[in-house]
């Protein structure tokens, strides 16, 4: 399993030189980059990251704030601090804040890479397994009452996830965009996974309150339901129509992201508060839940979802061939944007 290392620095040159310098280690880890703490937290939400290297002085969210957020929400992810303005006090604060490493700039890229490799090795100290069913293996973990962190890669979808066990009990789960039980349902439905075991669980707060068998059953039920939804009966005369529809949905059609951006820029201008826009299928499960509720009330087709999650940016999810995700400033003209995008 190739791990993902997130490097956070507002210095673009530093980011690029680290990315370039780390290329020779790409059999072990790949590099993601973020320009500040806020962008980093968005990436942490979307991706399964194995390690974070962060600068301290950055705009919007500095390295200490990021470290604190990671310790609170992703305690399993080790953090290495790098800084060009080191003081003994800073080093002490970084260590007390939970950082596993502290490097002063300038440094040799290979020295930092060695530190990264040593830290990443801990992720699989308990062993690795390939081509197993996640459900069956996880029942064994429960039986053996193990305390561990398990990182999984689904061979079919390429998605990654993390499970946290404390004395054999599932405490928490995480996979792109999902946390807790919702993430566990997703992970438990994976049939063929590669996994690595770390013999510790830094997640102390229990967020999953059902036992593994109940989660496994629910995961299977959801998977069956999703399978049924994906395989509708197709009568011959409908084939042509469906082919036309698929052509419409193929990515050759105008890029939905550009179309959304253009509409917002034209109708609202810079005030629209759009911070980022991208496509992400990790919200599919959530979208399916919402669509199911809409179907129950005969509400028709889902047009969009606006989510306020008490974070600096709100999310707008627009269904499509791939779900479009808009990250908007929470002070944006919300109702105006909703009206424009749902027209």
């Amino acid at each position: 399993m190739i791990k993902k290392v997130l490097i956070v620095d507002d210095d673009q040159e530093m980011l690029l030189s680290l990315k370039e310098g780390f290329e020779k280690y790409n059999a072990t880890f790949s590099v993601l980059m973020a320009g500040d703490g806020l962008v980093a937290t968005e990436k942490l939400e979307k991706e399964t990251i194995s390690l974070v290297i962060t600068d301290l002085r950055m705009p919007r969210m500095d390295g200490f704030a990021l470290l604190s957020k990671i310790m609170e929400q992703y305690p399993d992810i080790p953090v290495i601090i790098m800084t060009g303005y080191s003081t003994p006090e800073m080093e002490r604060l970084a260590q007390e804040g939970g950082a596993v490493g502290y490097v002063e700039k300038p440094f040799m890229i290979d020295d930092l890479a060695n530190k990264v490799l040593t830290t990443l090795r801990k992720e699989s100290e308990g062993g690795t397994l390939h081509s197993v069913s996640s459900g069956m293996f996880l029942q064994l973990i429960e039986m053996e009452q193990k305390t561990c962190t398990i990182r999984l890669l689904d061979a079919t979808s390429g998605k990654e996830g993390v499970l946290f066990f404390c004395d054999g009990e599932l405490f928490d789960a995480r996979t792109a965009g999902l946390k807790g039980e919702a993430a566990a349902y997703k992970i438990f439905s994976w049939d063929e996974v590669s996994l690595s075991i770390q013999n510790e669980c830094r997640q102390k707060e229990r967020k999953v309150h059902r036992d593994i068998n109940a989660i496994l059953l629910e995961a299977m039920r959801l998977k069956d339901e999703a399978g049924e939804a994906e395989e509708p009966e197709v009568v011959e005369e409908e084939i042509e129509e469906i082919e036309e529809l698929s052509e419409e949905l193929e990515p050759e059609t105008p890029d939905p992201l550009i179309s959304i951006q253009t509409r917002l820029k034209e109708e609202v201008g810079e005030r629209c508060g759009l911070e980022d826009i991208y496509q992400d299928n990790s919200w599919d499960g959530f979208m399916a839940q919402i669509s199911r509720m809409g179907a129950f009330f005969g509400a028709g087709k889902l047009k969009l979802i606006y989510l306020d999650r008490s974070e600096p940016n709100d999310l707008i999810l627009v269904p499509g061939y791939k779900t479009s995700i808009l990250l908007v400033n929470s002070k944006c003209p919300r109702d105006r944007i909703i009206t424009i995008l749902s027209e």
């Binding site: 839940q289 009330f297 509400a299 087709k301 889902l302 909703i338």
Partner: peptide, 25 residues
Amino acid sequence: DWWGLFIRSLNGVREADLIFEKSKF
């Protein structure tokens, strides 16, 4: 029986607008 799952999927959400063709929530 899927309301539990639906509500749990809202974990972390403070408020949400769901816009459908014929209704909104």
